[in-house]
Amino acid sequence: NKSIPMDSDSLVLWRRPFTTLEYFFRELLILISTGLQRLLAYRLLALSTIVLAASTVVSYYISGPHQAYVH
C-alpha cells in the first residue's frame, strides 16, 4: 500500500472526501480504544460513578418520603 505524501491543508472534506473520512474513522477507533483502556484502568471509579448516577435517577423517579429532598 503506497502512501501519498500530502499537505495537511489539502486534506479537507470537499477536496479529498474519502481520504478525509478514512482518517476520521481511523482516529475515532483509536480514541474509542484508548478511552476503553482508560476506563478499564479505573474500573472502581467508573463503577462508582455509574452506580451514583443510577441511584440519583432512580431516587428522582420513585415516589417516597425522600422526594422532598430530591426536589
Rank of each mutant, 00 (worst) to 15 (best):
N1D: 14
K2A: 13
S3V: 15
S3N: 14
S3P: 12
S3Y: 12
I4C: 07
I4R: 09
I4N: 12
I4A: 09
I4Q: 12
P5F: 08
D7M: 08
S8N: 11
S10D: 15
S10M: 14
S10I: 13
V12T: 15
V12W: 06
L13P: 00
L13W: 04
L13R: 08
R15L: 13
F18M: 11
T20A: 13
L21K: 12
L21I: 15
L21M: 15
L21F: 13
Y23Q: 15
F24E: 11
F24I: 11
F24R: 10
F25L: 10
R26C: 11
E27I: 07
E27D: 08
L29T: 07
I30C: 06
I32Y: 03
S33N: 08
S33Q: 11
T34Q: 02
T34L: 02
G35M: 02
G35Y: 02
G35P: 00
L36R: 10
Q37R: 06
L39Q: 06
L39Y: 02
L39D: 03
A41Q: 10
A41Y: 03
A41I: 02
R43F: 08
L44T: 15
L44K: 11
L45K: 06
A46E: 06
T49A: 04
I50T: 05
L52Y: 03
L52C: 03
L52R: 06
A54N: 00
S55M: 01
S55F: 01
S55K: 00
V57R: 00
V57W: 01
V58K: 12
S59R: 05
S59V: 02
Y60W: 08
Y60A: 10
Y60C: 07
Y61N: 06
Y61A: 01
Y61F: 09
I62L: 06
S63P: 03
S63F: 05
G64Q: 01
P65E: 05
H66R: 04
H66N: 07
A68E: 11
A68M: 10
Y69M: 09
Y69T: 08
V70K: 05
V70T: 07
